[in-house]
Amino acid sequence: MRDHQVTATAAQGFVPVVDLSRRNSAQGRRTIAEAIDQACMSSGFFVIVGHEVRQDLIDRMFSVTSTFFKLSDEEKDRVAHRPGVSGFRRVGGATALSLDQESPPDLCQAFAAHVTGELCEEERRTLGDQWATWTLANIWPENPADFRQVWEEYMAAMGELAADLMRLFALALGLEEGFFDDKFDHHGSSVAVNYYPPQTKAPLPGQLRRGPHTDFGSLTILYQEDERGGLQVLQGEDEWRDVAAIPGSFVVNIGDLMALWTGGRWVSTMHRVANPEAGDTSSRLTIPFFYLPNHDASIEPMRPTAEPCVDRSHSGAGVIAGQWMSCKLQKMFSGTT
C-alpha cells in the first residue's frame, strides 16, 4: 500500500487520514498518537490505512452480509430480532431519537451480533437491563452457510484493532498505554451492519437513511463501500461534509463516552447518512464495529494533571457505561419496533 502522510493534514481535510503502518515502533506510535489527538480535537473522525486487517476477510464479510440482505423478507425474518435474541431488524430504529429529536424511522435495515452473544444465558443476565443489547443471544442465519464463521472472525479482528486504537488513544492523552485495558476486558462490543435498500419512493419529510446522531460509546470502526457515498459529518453549525471511502481503509470516530472520558478535549461529532439523489435506486451497505467498555465500567471525566491532557474548563459528572448505553438505545428504538 502506498505510504500515507501520518499527520492530521490529510486528503480529506476535516476528516484526516492516519497511517497505522508504523505502529510497531515506539516513535511511530508517538507520531500516530499525535495525529489521532489532533483529529479527535477537531472533528472526532479520522480514516485509518495500514491497519493490517486482511483484505480477504473484509471482502468475505462484505460478501456474506450482502448476500444475506438480498434474501427474501420471509427468510431474513427467520432470524429476526426478538426478546432475548439479537438478529435482523427490518427497521433499524431512528437514530435522531437518541438525541431527543423527533424523526421518522431511518430508511435502513440492520443485523447485529455481539461479542457477548455467545455467553450462556446466566452470564448474559448479569450484564444489564432489557435495553442492553449486549445481553442478547446471537442468532445466526443458515444462509449463507459461512455467515457465522465469517462474522465471528471479523468481530475478533475488529476487537484486536480497537484495543490497539485505545492504547494509542491513551498515548494521545498523555497516559500509560494500558490505561484503558481493564475497562474493556469484558467489553460488550458489536457488529451492527446497516443495509440501505433502494429508494423506490420519496422519503417522508425529514426522513434519511440514518438521521443525525452521535455515537454512544468509545469508538466506532466503519467499513463502507468504496464507490457509494452517503456518510456525512457536521462541521460547524450547519455544514455537512462528505466522508469519501478510501479503498482499503476504515473510518474511525469517537463516541459520547470517549468525549466525556477526555473531559471535553475530544469531540463526539454529529453525523448522518444522506439519501441518494432522486432517481438513484442503488442500495448501500456499511459495516460498523462499536467498541464498548465493560457494562459496569465507571466513566469519569479526566482532570488536569501536571502534564494536562484535558480541557481545564470542563466539568461534568461520570456515568456507568452500560446504563448510559441502555438509555440511548431505549430512545433510539422507542416506537420503531
Rank of each mutant, 00 (worst) to 15 (best):
P144D: 10
A145E: 14
A145R: 14
D146C: 06
D146K: 07
F147G: 01
R148P: 00
R148S: 06
R148Y: 09
Q149E: 15
V150L: 06
W151S: 13
W151T: 13
E153K: 04
E153C: 12
Y154D: 05
A156L: 09
M158D: 00
G159I: 10
G159V: 10
L161K: 03
A162G: 08
A163T: 14
A163C: 11
D164T: 12
D164P: 04
L165Q: 02
L165N: 03
M166E: 08
R167M: 10
L168F: 01
L168E: 00
L171T: 01
L171A: 02
A172L: 02
G174Q: 02
G174M: 00
L175D: 04
L175P: 03
E177A: 12
G178C: 08
G178I: 11
G178L: 04
F179Q: 09
D181I: 08
D182C: 08
D182T: 10
D182Q: 11
K183E: 11
K183T: 08
K183M: 12
F184L: 06
F184C: 03
F184S: 00
H186T: 08
H187S: 13
H187A: 11
G188F: 08
S189K: 02
S189I: 11
S189R: 05
S189P: 10
S190T: 13
S190G: 03
V191K: 12
A192L: 14
A192K: 15
A192T: 15
V193G: 12
V193R: 01
Y195L: 07
Y195K: 04
Y196T: 06
Y196F: 14
P197Q: 00
P197L: 11
P197M: 12
P197A: 10
